[in-house]
């Protein structure tokens, strides 16, 4: 059993014509992940929402470093939320929140 789990933080930006709540984004990311990788994959990712600013449509999620590409693919596969077209871009990935905030100027 590993003593320390390495994490990755991903900065997101939601492109949409409507304002989208944190809950909607969380649901969309989880649904996309479950559709692509199933419950077994989801259990390995430790996916957590750190923050979401609905005014700026930007947020940060955390996951295990081994599942970054899976999370990236899931987020990229989201095409609609509440029946409206959206695109979620990943602005940057980093090992610490501080470095991520410096990198993408959130």
């Amino acid at each position: 059993m590993p003593r320390h789990v390495r994490r990755r933080y991903l900065a997101l930006r939601v492109l949409s014509e409507q304002s989208i709540s944190k809950r909607d984004v969380m649901d969309a990311v989880w649904n996309a992940f479950l559709q692509l990788f199933g419950e077994h994959g989801a259990s390995q990712t430790n996916l957590t929402f750190i923050e979401y600013n609905s005014e700026k449509s930007c947020g940060i999620v955390r996951c295990s470093h081994k599942t970054v590409e899976m999370v990236r693919a899931s987020i990229a596969s989201i095409t609609e939320i509440n029946g409206k077209p959206v695109a979620i871009d990943i602005l940057g990935v980093s090992g610490t929140l501080k470095a991520l905030r410096e990198k993408v100027l959130l």
């Binding site: 492109l15 692509l36 590409e69 990236r72 693919a73 990229a76 596969s77 077209p85 695109a87 871009d89």
Partner: peptide, 23 residues
């Protein structure tokens, strides 16, 4: 065909791993 279907290159590379294409 529209802006909502456009993704960044690293996102496409991650999606390509779904059909076993190495990053």
């Amino acid at each position: 065909t529209n802006v909502y279907l456009m993704r960044g290159p690293y996102e496409y590379a991650a999606l390509a791993s779904l059909f076993d294409m190495a990053v």
